[in-house]
Design a protein around this nucleic acid. Structure first.
Length: 190
DNA sequence: GTACTGATACTCT
DNA sequence: GAGTATCAGTACT
């Protein structure tokens, strides 16, 4: 399978968020291949989105959101969890899609080892969990996802998409910018 | 089953 | 210094 091209990400974040559902996130690690199907995403914009890291201006942390599309934006949340995003929109327009949950496919034993849990359901059913399972850290920040060891490939063509408000926000939580595959057991919250 | 809590370190004001 | 795009464990019902 060949990775999605950069042009896939060069659109509005909510379009990318919808279209990422059913695609497969792959990390080629030294210990082996780890992958999962994307089942939950959230869209984040720029100065029109008070919940976005890019709401105010470019900083040392959020600069990837302002850069070209198709790059990984990984940052630390609550002091211990790394969250994985993909930059979207053309260079200069800040936007990103947060990947919130995966359905495990390849490398399940590696995921169990990385996570330190036995229950398969809790391997990748949350944004902090999936980065731990796939071995994604801030070292993978600002990596091109259309070439290299961390990439996304086409998966299922048709999925049943549901939407809701975004999770864990204190501002800008009113809009329906969270997308997930209806009924999938790995979605963090139905 | 749901509800609440503490852990944790980094970022920007 | 305040706030944070979370999670696992514990205590309840």
């Amino acid at each position: 399978m060949t990775p999605l091209k950069q042009s896939f990400f060069s659109r509005a974040p909510r379009a990318v968020a919808r279209n990422l559902l059913g695609k497969i996130l792959v990390h080629r690690t030294r210990r082996g291949l780890i992958s999962g199907m994307i089942v939950e995403t959230e869209s984040y914009g720029g100065s029109d989105d008070p919940a976005s890291h890019a709401y105010k201006k470019i900083t040392q942390r959020n600069f990837v959101m302002f850069g070209p599309p198709g790059y990984s934006y990984v940052y630390l949340c609550y002091g211990m969890y790394e969250l994985f995003n993909v930059s979207t929109e053309k260079q200069g327009i800040p936007a990103a899609v947060l990947v919130r949950a995966l359905e495990p496919l390849d490398g399940i034993e590696l995921m169990k080892r990385n996570r330190g849990v036995k229950n398969i359901r809790s391997l990748t059913s949350g944004p902090g969990k999936l980065t731990q399972a796939l071995g994604i850290t801030r070292r993978q920040n600002n990596r091109a996802l259309f070439r290299g060891d961390l990439f996304i490939v086409p998966g299922r063509r048709k999925v049943a998409i549901a939407r809701s408000r975004r999770i864990g926000l204190s501002r800008g939580a009113d809009k329906l910018l969270r997308f997930f595959i209806k009924g999938n057991p790995y979605v963090s919250a139905q």
